[in-house]
Amino acid sequence: MEHYVNIFIKTVFIENMVFAFFLGMCSFLAVSKTIKTSFGLGLAVIFVLLITAPFNYLILNFFLVKGALSWIHPSLADVDMTFLSFILYISVIAGTVQLVEMIIEKFSPGLYASLGIFLPLITVNCAILGTSLFMAERQYDLAETAVFSAGSGTGFFIAIVGLAAIREKLKYSDVPDPLKGLGLAMLITGLMGIAFLSFAGIQL
């Protein structure tokens, strides 16, 4: 149990997807103008991650890795299809996002309208694909993958809501014109990243 809590804390704070790996930066910067939309996007990302990463784990381990196909026929034991992993991962993600889009459109049209183009763009949110790729690279098992994906989603959620809150306050500050908007958001993200670095000292 402790092991799983450790993975969760580690992915939320120490190896935060946004601040340590810069994953999901595009939507992170573009949707963080108000807290409300960033809240919705954060939840959608957590949801998509919770489905896609374990699903991709199953695909990887039952179809792609060397010897995985032997449950179909023993003669397939030498087949290694990991080179197909990118295409399969991204198809799973695109399908899931389509599903989430339909659910949100049905149950919360307001949120659907305010997320706009960024809902389909969750597909190309690097944090989602990145989680699947890290899952494969670090060779987590299924339970670890589930905890890991929950952690990275929560990390993204905390980061984007935090940045949105700061940017809402910044509207009332006097900033040099060329720095307004994107430039300032970058600098703020950097400072938040330094704040998150302080978690690096935690021993797990």
């Binding site: 430039g183 600098l187 993200t189």
Partner: peptide
């Protein structure tokens, strides 16, 4: 990691 963000932020500042 934060250094990259600062550098790009400054790059944007200069460019704009």
């Amino acid at each position: 990691p934060p250094a990259a963000l600062f550098l790009i932020g400054i790059y944007i500042w200069i460019q704009r």
